[in-house]
């Protein structure tokens, strides 16, 4: 199992609005590219109206080939660029993306 995680710090009071926009403008396309949204975590565990929220949006891929497939499909999709470059920034203070795997799977993943 492989997880692609978007870690987003929203502007104060914009956490819920960001998640709504993410689910509307970005998530359906990522599902269509073969990834599954398995967690939508919010910290702290309440929407803040005067401070940033931090969200972890966790996408799951079954194997490395599925990661490549999703990447290649995203690069040809103008909606992806529009989301990250135009639609998301008004909600966001900072973000980062990471690709994770279970610690116990690392040896097998590297044995290629």
């Amino acid at each position: 199992m492989i997880w692609i995680v978007d870690e987003v710090e929203t502007k104060p009071g914009m956490g819920a609005a960001f998640l709504d926009a993410y689910m509307t403008h970005y998530a359906p396309g990522n599902e269509a590219r073969g990834l599954k949204l398995v967690h939508r975590m919010v910290e702290p565990a309440m929407w803040l109206d005067d401070a940033p929220n931090r969200l972890l949006l966790v996408w799951q891929a079954d194997h490395a080939g599925a990661v490549w497939t999703a990447k290649h499909r995203a690069r040809g999709d103008a909606a992806v660029a529009r989301w990250w470059n135009e639609q998301a920034p008004p909600f966001i203070l900072s973000r980062r993306r990471g690709t994770y795997a279970p610690a116990e799977a690392l040896e097998a993943l590297a044995d290629v």
Partner: peptide, 15 residues
């Protein structure tokens, strides 16, 4: 290998 798709690929991926 994950050194490629999970690591160096970050420099090539617009996301």
């Amino acid at each position: 290998h994950p050194a490629h798709w999970a690591h160096v690929e970050r420099w090539f991926d617009p996301e």
